[in-house]
Computed example of a mutant assay.
Amino acid sequence: MSTEDFSLVDTDSLDSKQKEIQKCKKKHESLLNEQKILKDGIENNKNFAREFRRRAEERKVSIEEETKKCTKTIQKEKEKCSNIQEEQSRLQMDILKMKEELQSLDRKNSSLKKQTEISTAVPERRVVFQGETKEGAHAVSFDVNSRIVYPMEGGTALITFEEEDVAQKILSQKEHRVELGDCAITVQAKPIQFLVPDYVEMETQVCPHRILVSNLPKEEPEDRTLDKLDIYFSRKKNGGGEVEDTDMLHDSGTVVITFVEDNIAKRLSDKQDHEVDFGRKKYKVKVTPFLNGEISQMKICNSDSLRTVLLTGIPDIMEKDNLQDNLEIHFQKTTNGGGEVEGILYNPLGHNTLALFEEDSPKDSQTE
């Protein structure tokens, strides 16, 4: 090439091209850097996505395990609640049973208290059940005739033997198997105990309105006796006055007469003996003061009925009379440890019976 050829080249244009080339290089480098940044970002995003999936999987497993634990916990709590409800129901049943037992004890205590409500001093005496019963609101009492009314529970029987030794032998065996034809029952033998007065002190005072009339004719009817006494003691010529009330005391066979005025009773009791006209015949009656008494001190003690045994646990499986007969036959046999039976009373389940105990007649010169 000649010198002239080189001179034809434009230096400014060449510089401009070089500058453009430099710019392109820088732009290329910039693009490469951006590409690298994008690749790094994509890789980071992939790593982040992988980490996210891993954590999500772990979280899913953790949630499933937590759910299982919660389900088990809820099930256990439900079981606990169910157990608590069952325990609460059982406790409520126990409370009801305890209330029933307390009511039963209250009734028994009330009965025992009634037995100790005595109108006068009573020495301790032997009593025995002789098969009699007594009804009425005032049946539970212990009077001067040594009579005790014993409230029998259902499914029990009272049996009195002629000999104490037989009763004690029956008690020592405690349980007895009684054959009833095709079946048999087992009954328990228990002693009979009473609360009886051991020592009684009473504060008494003469009633100004009442008198006690005794020695009454037994052959006259009660209504006629009361009418004749009312007529006799209401007349002033006999020392009487206006009668307010007449009342027959059947246990003692005496009559209480109440006057309106309070000076009549003393006048009649001072005379004491009075002859009352009953129409066909005159009878001499005795008038004594009527005492109002209040127990000031009393001690009680336990007393056993040595010839009477209480049988409990008797099911209601046949007619009352048939079952009572079977019990009597069983305990009469010496092979069963029994002996001669003086009296027996069976009270079926669901029934209430009051057994009357009276003073036991002395045997072998023994007293109590």
Rank of each mutant, 00 (worst) to 15 (best):
I257S: 03
P217M: 03
T225I: 15
V256P: 01
Q297F: 12
N326T: 11
K114D: 08
D223F: 01
K60S: 12
H330W: 02
I329D: 08
T116L: 15
S252V: 14
N44A: 08
D227Y: 15
K46P: 10
P191Q: 05
K23H: 11
V128S: 14
C24E: 14
E368Q: 03
K284I: 03
D40G: 05
D94E: 07
E163V: 07
S62H: 12
L96P: 01
K169T: 15
L229G: 04
E86M: 04
I231G: 05
Y232V: 02
K218H: 09
S13L: 12
Y150V: 00
V206W: 04
R307H: 09
G155H: 05
H176P: 00
D165A: 14
R50Q: 14
N83V: 10
P123T: 07
K114S: 13
L249E: 13
I37G: 09
E135N: 13
K286N: 06
Q18C: 03
H250R: 13
L216R: 04
E64F: 04
I84L: 14
Q92K: 08
Q168N: 12
H209R: 12
D360F: 04
Y199I: 07
N302M: 09
T116R: 11
E179D: 15
K281F: 02
E100T: 10
N347T: 14
P289S: 01
P123N: 08
C24H: 11
D247L: 03
L356K: 15
T73S: 08
I63Y: 10
K78N: 09
Q272T: 13
N47W: 07
V187K: 00
G313L: 02
D325I: 11
P348W: 07
A157G: 02
R210W: 07
K236M: 10
D10W: 00
T71P: 06
S16M: 11
D304F: 09
A139D: 02
T11R: 08
